[in-house]
Write a protein that binds this DNA or RNA. Sequence first.
DNA 1: GTTATTATATTAACATACTAATATAAAAAA
DNA 2: TTTTTTATATTAGTATGTTAATATAATAAC
Lengths: 228, 228
Amino acid sequence: MNLSIDTNIDSRTMKDYVYQVLKRNIMELRLKPGSPLKKEKISRQLQVSVTPVREAFAKLAEDDLVDILPQNGTFVSHINIDKIIQAQFMRENMELAVIKLACEMDFPKDRLFKLQTIVKMQEILAEEENLIQLFELDNQFHRIVFETCNKKYVWEILQQVSTHIDRIRVLSLTTYFNRKEIIADHQKIIDAIKDKNLELAERVVKEHTNRIKYDIEKMKEKYSDYFD
Amino acid sequence: MNLSIDTNIDSRTMKDYVYQVLKRNIMELRLKPGSPLKKEKISRQLQVSVTPVREAFAKLAEDDLVDILPQNGTFVSHINIDKIIQAQFMRENMELAVIKLACEMDFPKDRLFKLQTIVKMQEILAEEENLIQLFELDNQFHRIVFETCNKKYVWEILQQVSTHIDRIRVLSLTTYFNRKEIIADHQKIIDAIKDKNLELAERVVKEHTNRIKYDIEKMKEKYSDYFD
DNA sequence: GTTATTATATTAACATACTAATATAAAAAA
DNA sequence: TTTTTTATATTAGTATGTTAATATAATAAC
């Protein structure tokens, strides 16, 4: 229940600040699914009034990260396996659609170089066991592909639905993480884009998402009380 | 600027009520892009305090339907053509993915019948020029397909993204609407699912979305000041 | 002991009041 | 006349207080 409070978040408003602190703590499972969130307590901890806390709750409810029960309380939501499956379905299909564009278009050399740099960095971080950074770079890799195909907004929406998946991925970081495979996947995606090899790209994307599905199953067994 | 106020909205909270009223008025372009939204005025019109109005504004901002400029004002957002294109990209690809599932699975007979009923109703409504209802049934048709494939959550996310597209579609209702083609498309989709004819389904879905793209171009010319 | 009723505490939703930031208009300086 | 400065109005963000609904605990009835 002890929040990790990061004062150096660049948030325009207090509401935004509270939202980001709570979201991070929920995503990193410092706040466990099912546990209650007390407005007054958080307002004391973060040194703000209850109004921005209340508004942050509302935004978290939009993300399905908390459940607000009127006149009762606000609770960290349980991880919903069906939502994860559907989020994964969206993710996989949109990833495939974008990779198709990437293979068809004239993918800029400097963007390919950027992707290559990320993979190199990931290889180093994997040695260092810096898993959080590895996770960040994984997202960055895919984001660059989406942005280069002029699908930045699509990426943003996928990020929103990915909150469900990401809670699992954070879990799997602490226990098991198929690092080498994921990094190898990224290398293959770069090669596929470079060679305009759509078939390879599609196969890799499918394998890539299958790995995540495997993680989900593993985590579901291990932390069954976090699910509903 | 005169709001259409529907008191018969089933909303749990005042915030929700205000949100729905404003959303509908923005979507139906009763509230024009760029026009300011005054908290006090709306709170008077809807007989609530400013707090739920303020919270409704925040939710509309999440949907990109309003722009909140701090200490300045809240304005109905302009229609962003790039967001529409990307929303359409998501819609088309997810529609394709789901239709693929529909063709592969054992699509229940009663659901097919439901879809068939909708098409029949649409044919009647097209004669009656009841365009709003036609628009509603169009959404319902696709929703049933998604839900039957266990992709209800995907549909909900797409609905959120579709707000941008829908403002256009409402516009095109009032001016031009390729009704017969859309109804015919739906009939073809039913046939494709029934016959498990994936190729036909994919061709129709692509044509279906292309019609909307055509509408977008038309509306962009006609109402250029609504765009940014 | 078990069920039904009442009382209490807690809470989200809402109302109202205040503050600081921004834009616009008015006034002053060039 | 044009530019700069100052004053005013408006507004989002925030704080605090109030209300009504819900759950839990305590009591009463069976």
